[in-house]
Design a protein around this nucleic acid. Structure first.
Length: 542
RNA sequence: GCGCCCGUAGCUCAAUUGGAUAGAGCAACAGCCUUCUAAGCUGUAGGUUAGUGGUUCGAUUCCACUCGGGCGUACCA
């Protein structure tokens, strides 16, 4: 529908040059009585043209060469909206478009040829993924899906660091647990990793090596084994949610490939780094940030900022047109420094999009569950998937804007799992599958020969929803908002359920019945595509 | 103190990025299956969009301040 209007406006702009001075948009009005699409163009122009909006609207409208087979009615309404009412005949044609390419319907080529990198999860392998990581993981993977749907070639990437203090403590935690198994008296520090999984790793080492490791350092086999076992678990947890990273980028390789040094040298040669109190500082005040920050500590060890900058430089050098970083809100103070650093090195930081999601507050029966990986007080992502299933987890984390401070009540999630909106969508899909099986038995087919018979209100409403899918996908991808897809699918499913309640297939005249089957089939395809973007299954039966 | 995020129906959240009368799902109440999936549909009730100002044709959306909550504010990541 929008494409048609755009072409009309483009044509009209040849005579009305002021149409080129504003960005033309069409919105679906909230009220049906305001038409199928609405343009506010005339209200954007009064100042420039020094004329009344309603008058401008009239001029625009009369310049549009409208095909009465497509648009049956137009009006100028309210303060200057131009409203368009499409013919039912035109609206019904969407079915042909959907059925001609069921799996591809909704995809666009707008960003074809562009490369994107989505970096997400990126938790260091110090323990199992928690529910908090779940939001990051699901959102990141879904953003990657969305970008693919609008044409990007996407790499999913996981950045981690197995070199720092965190990992040393991890290795030593395992070592101490191992020594406990040898009946050694050990003081297990309170700020070490308390989780049961540490004991399991120690137990595995004991089973394999017996007492041979008693004088091994923490940084050797203890750390290595901890890292590899925990990473295995992390990958398995992600796979349960159908999340697979293509690239695991280890911070270590930045040192091995001399990227850290190169980055410092670049800053120094630009006069943006200086030494003070034995440390190296980055002149961030010169780059528009609040204060200078240390990039190399007096111990000679870089702070996270330096490798983060060097890491992003590698992304630029790897040729990405769009780089997405997904962080929890606890990292919100770090990225301005990194972006400023990149700008200083001559990179276009606009290509880096940092998406910050707020924390998930876990509740259990109304009580807040406080979480900490080190204290081993957390609910793991695995536990959550065990409790409610992968589909519910994926849907739940996708259905809310990432800016919301989301509450997740485990008690309610378990209790109300049947009433979760994801089942509403899956049910609609399963219901259609069942219809399609049924019509086979009745010797009916999906037919697009008589789509103009689809004129009942419930049919038209559903058809209009199908029209919106492509726009929703594009908008969701461009705004990096997955929850729009959920809202859209809930509306689509509702429109279908209404249609199916009022419009029967059996016992209806054959031509109409077959047109309705085609409508159901098209709806099924769009539901399936939407769920695919979200990474949620579309079951054939429930 | 300062920075980022948030505050919308009893609860969980939307609102086409500044649009017309703020919408869904739960929860509550009242209805709808002897034929196609009732995990569904129909209806009722529920609001000073935290508050006060401002910007303009028009504000839940933008700006300022106030109140309340989350996360940060390191030579931790």
């Amino acid at each position: 529908m929008k494409e048609y209007l755009y072409s009309l406006y483009k044509q009209a702009a040849k005579n009305l040059s002021y149409l080129n001075d504003i960005s033309i948009t069409f919105d679906v009005p909230k009220l049906e009585s305001h038409g199928d699409l609405s343009s506010n163009a005339a209200m954007l122009l009064p100042k420039m043209l020094k004329r009344k909006p309603v008058e401008i609207a009239g001029e625009i409208l009369s310049a549009l060469q409208i095909d009465p087979d497509v648009i049956e009615k137009t009006e100028i309404a309210g303060p200057g909206f131009i409203n368009f009412f499409f013919t039912k005949k035109f609206i019904a044609k969407i079915i042909m478009e959907v059925l001609s390419d069921e799996k591809g319907f909704g995809k666009t080529q707008k960003y074809a040829g562009k490369k994107a990198n989505v970096e997400f999860v990126s938790a260091n392998p110090t323990g199992p993924l928690t529910v908090g990581h779940g939001r990051n993981a699901v959102f990141g993977d879904t953003i990657a899906n969305l970008l693919e749907w609008v044409g990007y070639d996407v790499d999913r990437e996981y950045y981690f660091n197995n070199a720092g203090r965190q990992m040393r403590v991890l290795g030593d935690s395992v070592r101490l647990r191992y020594l406990e198994l040898l009946d050694q008296k050990v003081e297990f520090p309170a700020d070490y990793y308390q989780g049961e999984y540490i004991k399991e790793i120690a137990r595995n080492l004991f089973d394999e090596f017996g007492e041979k490791l008693f004088d091994q350092p923490a940084e050797g086999i203890f750390k290595q084994r901890a890292e590899s076992e925990i990473f295995k678990d992390i990958k398995r947890s992600l796979e349960r949610l159908s999340i697979i990273h293509k690239i695991f980028y280890n911070e270590n390789s930045l040192y091995e490939e001399n990227k850290i040094k190169e980055t410092i040298e670049s800053f120094k040669s630009k006069g943006l780094a200086y030494d003070k109190d034995g440390a190296t500082w980055l002149r961030l005040t010169e780059l528009g940030n609040e204060q200078d920050k240390v990039i190399v500590k007096s111990t000679g060890e870089p702070t996270y900022r330096l490798p983060d900058i060097a890491y992003h430089v590698t992304k630029f050098n790897r040729g990405y047109d769009l780089m997405i970083d997904i962080f929890g809100s606890d990292h919100n103070a770090t990225y301005p420094d990194v972006l400023a650093g990149l700008r200083a090195l001559g990179y276009d930081s606009e290509k880096v999009k940092v998406l910050i999601h707020q924390f998930v507050t876990i509740m259990d029966g109304g009580e807040v569950v406080k979480m900490s990986t080190r204290k081993a007080n957390y609910i793991t992502l695995d536990q959550l998937v065990d409790e409610v299933g992968a589909d519910v987890v994926r849907y739940f984390f996708n259905m809310r804007n990432i800016t919301t401070h989301m509450n997740f009540d485990l008690y309610l999630a378990k209790k109300q799992s049947d009433e979760n909106p994801v089942f509403y969508l899956q049910y609609a899909h399963a219901r259609i599958c069942s219809i399609l099986k049924m019509i086979e038995k009745e010797n009916l087919n999906a037919s697009v020969e008589n789509l103009s018979l689809l004129t009942a209100n419930e049919e038209v409403q559903l058809l209009k929803k199908l029209h919106q899918f492509k726009d929703e996908v594009l908008l969701s991808a461009e705004t990096f908002e997955t929850h729009r897809i959920c809202s859209y699918l809930e509306e689509l499913a509702a429109a279908f359920h209404k249609f199916y309640t009022f419009c029967r297939i059996l016992g209806t005249e054959r031509k109409l019945a077959e047109a309705r089957v085609a409508l159901a089939k098209a709806t099924k395809a769009v539901l399936k595509n939407g769920l695919t973007i979200l990474g949620v299954n579309a079951p054939e039966r429930m």
